[in-house]
């Protein structure tokens, strides 16, 4: 126990250094926000300056009306929430049994999951579309959600597995003593414990789904009313020109939900097993 004052000073020093770095980190976002209220001349004429010379709020109304954002926003939320829920549930379940149970085929599953992580997925959209067509899932939100929630997400399974492998056995045993069955143990003890992982998976899946472009595009070819925000942003990039300020406004609108989600979930990022064990 050296002088506690010095440790506190040290922490403030850390904060100051980190804040300086963080400013550089968020600068481009501030730039996007400021671009969203500039006109094209303002964006390209004032370079790095953040303060708009004239405030062009109509960029937002243009994004909202022209790009049909209200409808796209609803679609995006629906598709993204559906995908995130499926991903969390199925990946947590799979990660749990992979980490804590020995069963036939387990090693094979882990091996195949790990190996397929490295396959470039850029072309998967072609066979996925063919499959969805055969199964009659094209042109529906359900088909889109399944495709988004089904492909990849090996990372989520691995993160859950890595986490559950570290959970002390005592917790489970205590649950069994209390008479909890398999499902109950998982739902009541294990899933809540993995808050930090769930928060991570939710944020990352949300992000990936929200910004995904080609799958939502293909699944809404003949149902334009089902399009998502990322697809809706098409309208800003034309053959010979891009509506930069409209795009910036649309981008600012579309990243609000993700930022809000991150702010809400971030307490889970610093909340560990230890606390749960005590309570």
């Amino acid at each position: 126990m050296r002088a506690p004052v010095s440790r506190r000073t040290l922490r403030w020093l850390q904060t100051i250094v980190l804040s300086a770095v963080a400013l550089a980190w968020i600068y481009p976002l501030l730039w996007i926000l400021s671009a969203s209220v500039k006109d094209a001349t303002g964006i390209f004429g004032s370079g790095l300056s953040l303060w708009p010379e004239s405030w062009q709020w109509e960029n937002y109304s243009r994004a909202w009306d022209e790009a049909g954002f209200a409808r796209y926003m609803v679609n995006s939320v629906l598709v993204t929430v559906g995908t995130v829920v499926i991903v969390v549930v199925r990946c947590a379940a799979a990660g749990y049994v992979i980490a804590r149970y020995r069963f036939v085929g387990r090693r094979l599953i882990v091996g195949v999951l790990a190996a397929t992580m490295f396959i470039p997925t850029g072309l998967f959209v072609v066979p996925v579309v063919e499959l969805s067509d055969v199964l009659g899932l094209l042109n529906s939100h359900l088909g889109l959600i399944l495709a988004l929630a089904g492909g990849g997400h090996v990372a989520a399974v691995l993160l859950y597995a890595g986490f559950y492998a570290k959970v002390p056995k005592e917790l489970e045993e205590a649950a069994v003593v209390d008479g909890a069955g398999f499902l109950r143990t998982f739902l009541r003890i294990m899933l809540p414990l993995s808050g930090p992982i769930t928060a991570t998976v939710v944020v990352l899946t949300f992000l990936a789904t929200w910004n995904n472009f080609f799958l939502p595009l293909v699944f809404t070819f003949s149902t334009p009313q089902n399009r998502t925000l990322a697809v809706g942003m098409l309208a800003f990039q034309g053959t010979n020109s891009t509506d930069w300020s409209g795009l910036a406004a649309a981008a600012s609108l579309s990243l609000l939900p993700i930022l809000a989600l991150f702010l809400v979930l971030q307490r889970y990022f610093v909340e560990g097993i230890a606390g749960a064990v005590k309570s």
């Binding site: 629906l78 559906g82 529906s140």
Partner: peptide
């Protein structure tokens, strides 16, 4: 979400 999905998949122009 599931309810919404099944709704939209049946009410979409002609489903699948």
């Amino acid at each position: 979400a599931l309810a919404a999905c099944s709704r939209s998949s049946t009410s979409g122009s002609s489903g699948s």
